[in-house]
Amino acid sequence: MHTAPAPLVDRFGRVHTDLRVSLTDRCNLRCTYCMPAEGLNWLPKAEVLTDDEIVRLAQIAVRRLGIASVRLTGGEPLLRRGLPGLVARLTELGVDLSLTTNGIGLARMAGELKAAGLRRVNVSLDTLRPERYQAITRRDRIADVFAGLAAARDAGLAPVKVNAVPVRGVNDDEIVELVEFAAGHGYLMRFIESMPLDAQGAWDRSAMITADELLGILGARWELEPLRREPTRGGTPPAEEFRIAGTDTVVGVIASVTRPFCGTCDRVRLTADGQLRNCLFATEESDLRALLRGGADDSAIEQAWRNTIARKGPGHEINSADFVQPERPMSAIGG
C-alpha cells in the first residue's frame, strides 16, 4: 500500500509543494534589468546537473517530499539540449509541469514540448515595440517571441501567460496596450513588480511600478473585478487576478515587493548547478549536487532537503533595512 509522503514543511507551518528547477544559467538575451551587456560568465558544463541528476532529484521531491508541481526555468530553458526528452521523463512522475521562457525558440519547440507532456508556458515580454524590445533586451528578436506565443497557444500549452515587468520611464506607457494585446490573442497578461535580482546590482525602487499604481492605470481604463485566488495542485498562486467587467479578460498582478506573499510561500528552488534554495532571496544554499555525486542515498538527500526548508525565514526582507541582495542574479537562480 502506497502511503503519502510527509509534507515538506518549515518552522512557520508552510507546506512546500512547488519546485522551480533551473535548467541553465545561459540566456540568449541580455535584458538590462537582469544582466550587464557583457562580462557575465556562464557555469562550466561539468557543474550543471545532468538530465539523470535532475530526474533523480525530482523523483525524491515527488515521492518523498510531496512536491506536486514543477516549473522549468533558466536562464533560458529552451537552450537546454534534449529538453523534450527531459520533459517526458519529468512528466512520468505525475507532476503539473510548466515552463518559463523568453519565447525565442518556442515556435520551433512548442508542439514537441506539448507532446512530451508540458502543460503550459509563461513567456516574458515587456514591450510590444520592436525598437524598445531591442533596447531592453539588447537583441532584435521580438518577431520570434510573437511567433513563439502563437505556436504555444496553437499547441495547446494553455493558458499562455505573458509576463511583463513595468518600469518607470521604460515601458509603463504600454500597460493598457499589453493587456489589449494579450486579450486579443487569447493570452493571460500578468504584471510583476520589479525586484532586486539583477546581476549588476542596479535595481532602483523608485523606478518600480507598484501594484497600486498598476491597478490605478488599469482601473482608469476598465472596471476591474477581483477574483478569488483558487488553490492549485502546487498551492496558492502568487498572482492577484482581476477580470475586466463584461469580458472574459483576466489580468494578474504579482506584487512581490509591496504586497509580499511570503506568508503562504510554497516554493523551493533548485539551481542549474544543483544548489537548493529555500527562498528566491536566500543568502545560503545547500549543495545537493555534491551529495548526488558523492554517492548519497535518497534518504540522505531527502534529509538535506528537509533541513534546508526547516531553516527558511519568515520573508524576503526587501522592505527592511537588513535586506541583503543575493549574490546570484535571477539568471543564475531560476525564476
Rank of each mutant, 00 (worst) to 15 (best):
A6E: 15
L8E: 12
V9I: 15
R11Y: 07
H16M: 10
R26C: 09
R30P: 00
T32R: 11
A37D: 15
L40C: 05
L43H: 01
P44Y: 03
E47H: 12
R56H: 10
L57T: 01
Q59T: 14
Q59E: 14
I60C: 09
I60K: 08
V62L: 08
R64I: 11
I67M: 13
A68F: 09
S69V: 02
L72D: 04
T73W: 04
T73E: 07
G74A: 06
L78G: 02
L79H: 04
R80S: 13
R80A: 02
L83F: 04
R89E: 13
T91P: 01
G94H: 12
V95L: 10
D96S: 15
N102R: 05
A107I: 08
R108E: 08
M109G: 03
G111Q: 00
L113A: 02
A116V: 09
R119G: 03
R120D: 09
R120E: 07
N122P: 10
L125P: 03
L125M: 15
R129Q: 15
R132W: 13
R132Y: 13
T137F: 13
R141Q: 15
A143S: 14
D144Y: 14
F146L: 14
A147T: 04
G148H: 00
G148Q: 00
L157Q: 06
A158S: 11
A158M: 13
V160M: 07
K161R: 15
V162H: 06
G169D: 00
D172W: 07
E174W: 07
E177Y: 03
E177L: 12
L178I: 14
E180D: 08
A182C: 15
G186N: 01
Y187I: 07
F191E: 03
F191V: 04
D198I: 12
A202N: 10
R205K: 14
S206K: 13
M208C: 13
M208P: 04
T210C: 08
E213N: 00
G216T: 10
G216H: 07
L218S: 03
L218Q: 07
W222D: 06
R228K: 10
R229P: 02
E230Q: 05
E230I: 14
T232Q: 14
G234C: 14
A239G: 01
A239L: 03
T247R: 06
T249C: 11
V251S: 11
V257L: 12
R259N: 05
R259Y: 00
R259Q: 06
F261P: 02
C265Y: 04
G274T: 06
G274N: 04
N278Y: 13
C279G: 08
T283L: 15
D287L: 04
D287Q: 09
D287M: 10
L288A: 12
L288K: 11
L291G: 11
L291C: 09
R293K: 10
R293L: 11
D298A: 09
S299I: 12
Q303Y: 07
R306K: 09
T308P: 03
I309A: 01
G315Y: 06
E317M: 13
R328W: 12
I333W: 10
G334W: 05
G334H: 05
